[in-house]
Simulated assay, not measured.
Amino acid sequence: ADDLANYRVTLNLDHRLDQRRYNVPVTTKVAAVWVEGNERRKFEPSVTIYGNNRTRKCIQPFYGYYDPLSYPLFFPRGESGWHQGLPKDKITMEAANDHHGDDPDWNSMIRVSVRDYYCYKFQMRHGIFNPILHGRRLFQQFAVDMYIKVESSRLDYVRNNQKEIRADLYQGLMDSIQARESPASAVGKRTVLPASFVGGGRNMKRRYMDAIALVQKYGKPDVFLTMTSNPKWDEITREFEPGQTPQDRPDLVVRVFRAKLEDLKKQLFEKHILGKVIAHVYVVEFQKRGTFC
């Protein structure tokens, strides 16, 4: 911008904050904390710009300059990150900002989704240096931060399209009465997650009922098979850069695990290495190793 000299960038300069949280990390894992009751809050901005006249501007995660301001080491040239109007290849910016942009089908055809954008950023390309894949713990933080952005965009869509998922059938005064909520403050409008939203209550119930239906029709399962990911697989370790560990490359670990999972499914369901499969159910779990005293 022409008036760039009139602004300054402030990063966590509030002295009331606990500065210990900004010390050098002592663990190899990064996690996100979701506070109960914050379901209706937007993603909190982490970068604030103040003008010389003390005007304040919060950088929202769906702005193109959120990523370079939050992670300057990954965007040293100030490249724009993902934004809602990012066009696909061979699509002009004018077409991406066309009035049809409110149509989900039109939007998916001409605009890059937040998920597709960060899948692209995490790709390995021979001969091209990707600073994100060399960020180690900062890469972990970036991955968690961007996943929250992806999940927030999905929740925003659900929140803004309650009529399309027929949420009126699952909310309202009758639901509150059936739940025996007598205080008036407890009666309100609920945001309902569709059954297609992975991890939601309806999605989990549907998967459970499907599994029970298979047992009811075909009987108890004959084989219980467990596959565990090993971060020391040769397919993972041989792709490391010098000095890297499995904790530094979570993208590589999950990518190899996914490939091996798909190969195992092909061996079981197409090549029938354990016999012909008439029904199956499987789930992928992420477990954290703990120590006991």
Rank of each mutant, 00 (worst) to 15 (best):
P76L: 03
E39Q: 11
M204S: 09
G290V: 12
N97E: 09
Y147M: 13
L13I: 09
W82Y: 01
I59T: 01
H15K: 15
C58M: 14
G51E: 02
M93T: 15
S182P: 07
G243A: 00
N6S: 15
A96Y: 04
E235Q: 09
Y65S: 03
N23E: 14
D248M: 04
I110G: 07
R125A: 05
Q60A: 07
R180Y: 11
G275W: 04
P25V: 02
R125D: 07
R255T: 06
R40L: 15
N97L: 14
S176V: 02
V284D: 14
V150K: 03
A259N: 11
Q60H: 10
Y147A: 12
V192T: 09
Y7L: 06
I177M: 10
A213L: 03
L155N: 07
H100L: 12
N38T: 15
V35H: 13
T237K: 08
D248H: 03
P221D: 01
V215D: 08
D263P: 03
V254L: 12
P231K: 09
F224L: 03
L4D: 13
I91V: 14
Q60F: 06
G172E: 06
E79Y: 06
Y65M: 04
E164K: 12
Y218S: 07
P250M: 05
Q287S: 12
F240N: 04
L13A: 12
Y118F: 11
F257Y: 01
P231T: 06
M204E: 11
D145F: 00
I177D: 00
N6Q: 14
R202S: 06
P61L: 00
R16Q: 15
P250L: 02
K163V: 13
R136Y: 05
H126W: 05
K260R: 10
T228L: 09
T27L: 09
M209N: 11
K88Y: 00
R190Q: 08
F142P: 06
P194S: 06
E151Y: 11
P87E: 04
D175W: 08
A179N: 11
L73A: 15
Q84N: 08
G64R: 01
I148N: 15
R190F: 05
D222Q: 11
H126E: 13
D67S: 04
N203G: 05
R166W: 09
R77H: 09
R20C: 06
G37D: 08
L193M: 14
L73N: 14
K266D: 13
D89Q: 08
A1E: 14
Q141T: 14
P104Y: 01
I110Y: 15
V281P: 09
F240M: 05
Q171F: 09
D89P: 01
M209Y: 05
R115T: 07
G127V: 03
E44R: 12
Y118N: 06
A167M: 05
G275H: 04
R249K: 02
E79R: 05
P246A: 01
V24D: 10
E285W: 00
S46H: 07
K288C: 11
P72Q: 07
E44L: 10
R166T: 01
Q244S: 01
P250T: 01
Q244W: 02
V144E: 04
E239R: 12
K149C: 08
R154K: 14
A95V: 14
M109H: 07
H280C: 12
Q84G: 12
D168L: 10
T10D: 13
G78L: 00
R111E: 02
F197R: 09
L17Q: 15
R249G: 04
